[in-house]
Design a protein around this nucleic acid. Structure first.
Lengths: 353, 353
DNA sequence: CAATATGGAAAAATCGATTTATCGCTTGTT
DNA sequence: AACAAGCGATAAATCGATTTTTCCATATTG
């Protein structure tokens, strides 16, 4: 009985109107809950909707309404746990407000980032949550500003004078990591960072160094800045160790750095935490099950998403005022990969001189 | 000079028409490359487009065209590397064909899966790539069939009589894992599977068992089927070991199982591969850098995405014929977590009796 | 009882495009 | 010179909704 409907055209509001014996305008009003419709007609419309299995076409609807109930989200990649959960949370929050989330990945390219943004502008999205590849000054942000788009920048950003920003308070977290390491006796620490996002990385770095030096002025902090690709990173690290450098701890400011550090340790036969300690910025599910469990700074993903959506919707609803820069606190989980220096075979034997 | 444009309404095709001194129809034709327009007018239109910064509204355009150039993608979660790359690839392929990809996550809920599908139907997407939470017989697939949507099912599916399917050839891969383990001397193997996706898991299991028994009839294959949540899985595994079971190898059919197995080993002080060997279905970036590197079955993500999009677009373009079921070959990477049994302290001491 | 107010619904305009039908003008044919 | 054909372009219809305007009854008022 329902069979022949399978391939028929979907019913439009006019089909419903015909079936109910009223005008399309009345159907629209009923579905939007306008009160000035006779109860009898309301019933007829609902019956017709039921009978035909009608559902409004949100895109056609939005076309007339001028603003589209779509939020765009742009992240550098889908593959990571972090951005994966960011998208999940944003999706949840957008849907809660009756908006659809359209997600896209810039694949770590600023050019693509701008193209995607242009496409979202074509789609007339109501707002955009952008996790920029690099920082808040990229071409994408420029595009948004130029075209008067409303948007929020998250993650790899500092305070900005054009957009609201929400990010993890990696500065405080880095200070805390410094404290944890120094208190355990580490005085020679290597920090791994991404060279591309100058300002944010610098902030973390400065915070880390300052905090470490304040607690123990004789602390030596080495820094390797690299790209996100595995290979260049790996070779910088290899060169560094080949020079004979023997830090007692490594703090990686990004996930892939943690991974590469770990694999370099492995290649050299060093074990955490006996030979060297390791802390990574950004947590991952595997870190707590490997041996040793890897210490990590956990970003408040959920909170970042909530705040971002919150401020975004306030702007969409027309709230004015200067851009706000939110920093959400991180949690620092000191797991087994961190210990005191000097207990392992390698650091015991050949102390840095 | 561009300042006051910032907050103005976006130019429509009529604005371009006015500016160029032609009709909207002509503008449309020029932008679509229809040849029957005087070169002079073509130029005027392009100039006006340039001047106003006009871009077509793809949604309004699609409204008239009847079919929308949108592909929907539904995956159980965004957080995993696997589905993350699936989405990335699908996005790439859709864009290549001039379509936009709209991705959503079902968050491992069949109810939500169906709701999302309904929403995509509301959006009048041209096609859907669905990675079902459970299998090809869920309510979502039913919905698609009932509403005559064109779609491809991927990942957790077997051949289906209503939809094209593309998935990793986990059956052959499982047989290969069985061979690798048996050849190394393993005769007591524990397999961890997800209980929810009965058919697919059963297929892998049967293939594994059959292959193992054929090579060594005295092989014992234990099975634990669990949900995807960490805790129930962990406790089943714990109970199993508490009973005194001492398999020499574990083959986990899903990523989280691998993770949990690893953490249980750790808790008990067992090391891979000396005390027990471990192979996981599904590879992850961290697996090759931890110690030991974890052996894994690598799914052909890229190939799955390519084939899925390929058949999807053929169907969109109207190609008929019976549904096809594609299986893409996996790669089995035997890393350090796999060895021969009987060399480690625990298995050497208390052999299973 | 005529004039006005009002409630409810239909008709028409609109959103931003595409597509079809139509029209005016030039050119070619006889 | 008259008519058909063809080219280019425009007007109008359309997609599926929402919103504004109009309209017809009935109810209220003077």
């Amino acid at each position: 009985m329902v069979h022949r409907e399978a391939h028929a055209r979907r019913p439009s509001i006019h089909d419903v109107a015909n079936s109910a014996g009223v005008s399309a305008a009345t159907v629209s009003k009923v579905l939007q809950g306008v009160a000035t419709v006779k109860p009898e007609n309301v019933q007829r419309v609902f019956d017709a909707v039921e009978l035909l299995g009608y559902r409004v076409d949100p895109l056609a609807s939005d076309l007339r309404r001028a603003k589209r109930r779509i939020i765009g989200a742009i992240v550098p990649e889908f593959e990571s746990e972090f951005f994966g959960s960011v998208i999940t949370q944003l999706e949840r929050l957008a849907e809660q407000r009756g908006y659809a989330l359209v997600a896209a990945s810039s694949r770590e390219s600023e050019t693509r980032e701008k193209e995607i943004l242009a496409r979202m502008h074509d789609w007339r999205v109501s707002g955009v949550v952008l996790a920029p590849v690099r920082n808040e000054h990229g071409p994408a942000a420029g595009f948004m500003k130029k075209n008067g788009m409303t948007g929020v920048l998250i993650d790899r950003v500092l305070a900005d004078d054009a957009f609201d920003t929400v990010s993890a308070d990696s500065v405080s977290a880095s200070a805390e990591v410094a404290r944890e390491l120094v208190e355990r006796g580490h005085r020679h620490i290597l920090v791994l960072g991404l060279g591309e996002q100058a300002a944010t990385v610098r902030a973390r770095l400065d915070s880390f160094r300052e905090s470490a030096l304040q607690l123990a002025p004789d602390t030596r902090v080495d820094v390797i800045l690299s790209e996100s690709d595995v290979e260049p990173l790996r070779s910088s690290l290899r060169d560094y160790f080949a020079k004979g450098e023997r830090p007692t701890a490594v703090y990686s400011l990004f996930l892939r750095g943690t991974l590469v550090a770990l694999s370099e340790f492995r290649r050299r036969g060093w074990h955490c935490p006996n030979d060297i300690s390791l802390v990574g910025f950004d947590d991952a599910e595997w870190m707590q099950v490997t041996w040793p469990a890897i210490a990590a700074v956990v970003q408040p993903v959920r909170q970042i998403a909530i705040e971002a959506m919150d401020v975004l919707f306030r702007r969409i609803e027309g709230e004015g005022g200067p851009p706000m820069a939110r920093l959400e606190p991180c949690k620092v989980l000191m797991r087994e990969s961190v210990g005191s220096p000097g207990s392992g075979p390698h650091s015991g034997g050949g102390k840095r001189q």
